[in-house]
Amino acid sequence: MPPSHVLVPLDGSPLADEALAEALALFDCHITVLNVVTPLDSGMSEGGVLDAGEDRRESAHDRAERLVDRARTRAADADRTVDTAVRTGDPADTILEYVDDHAIDRIVMGGHGGERNAVARRLLGTVATTVVGEAPVTVTVVR
């Protein structure tokens, strides 16, 4: 059964961009693009270890808005529209919460290399590994 609502988490990476292209090409349904801004006190952040402060927070939210705006433009170029959302939190947890809170029935996301001591994490990345393992819906990981 084809999905009716696909979630594409975007983090600005080339693989996330490929995931959006894949979702737009494969699924003729409602697509939502989600960017998660990682809190400064988290062990992960979208740009690595960065200085705390209001400038950093504002910069992260500006970056998130640029990412979702770019996704809207890419969808429009394909004669499609996407809904967009920006949330703050741990990326994997926030993606899973978004799925639970909305009528999402498929996730399409990019995978990234992660820690070298775990094969799955090396193949998919830590966020993708967590989402694949815990999502209540089908997850397609683009590599």
Rank of each mutant, 00 (worst) to 15 (best):
S13H: 06
A120Q: 14
I95Y: 05
G114S: 10
S13V: 09
D28V: 02
R72H: 03
G111Q: 08
Y98G: 00
R74Q: 14
D55P: 00
G48A: 09
H61L: 14
S59E: 15
L96F: 08
A16H: 06
S59K: 14
A76W: 05
L96P: 01
P39W: 09
V49M: 08
G114F: 08
L20W: 05
V68Q: 06
M44S: 12
V131K: 08
C29S: 15
T129P: 00
A21Y: 03
D69R: 15
R121T: 13
H5N: 12
G133L: 10
E22M: 10
G133W: 06
E134K: 13
F27D: 09
L26A: 15
P91A: 10
D55T: 10
V139F: 02
D28Q: 14
V108N: 07
R106M: 13
D93I: 04
D100H: 08
N117P: 00
T84I: 13
V37M: 08
V8M: 02
V6W: 03
D28M: 03
D55F: 10
V49H: 05
T94P: 00
S42W: 09
R66E: 15
D90V: 08
V127K: 05
L20V: 11
D51N: 09
L7E: 02
A128F: 06
H102F: 05
V142N: 04
R72A: 11
A78K: 13
S59D: 14
D100N: 07
D93T: 13
D101P: 00
D79L: 01
E22F: 12
M109C: 08
R74D: 12
V86A: 07
V119T: 14
L26P: 00
A23T: 11
G53H: 06
D11C: 06
C29H: 07
P14T: 14
V99T: 05
I104Y: 04
R70Q: 13
P39Q: 05
M1I: 12
D105F: 07
T94C: 03
P2K: 12
I95T: 02
D41E: 13
G133Y: 07
E97F: 00
A78H: 11
V36A: 04
E115P: 00
T140K: 07
V36H: 02
R121Y: 01
V127R: 02
R57W: 15
V49Q: 07
V37G: 01
P2D: 13
V137T: 08
E65M: 12
R70H: 13
D28F: 01
M1G: 12
G133R: 14
C29T: 15
V139M: 01
A92W: 05
T84Y: 07
A64L: 06
C29L: 11
R121H: 07
V142C: 02
L67G: 02
L40C: 00
V131G: 04
G47H: 13
R116W: 12
H102M: 07
H5R: 10
V127Q: 05
L24K: 04
V132A: 10
P9V: 11
A135V: 00
E134A: 14
L20S: 05
M44D: 11
A71T: 07
A128D: 06
D90L: 09
V36W: 02
H102Y: 09
N117I: 13
V137S: 05
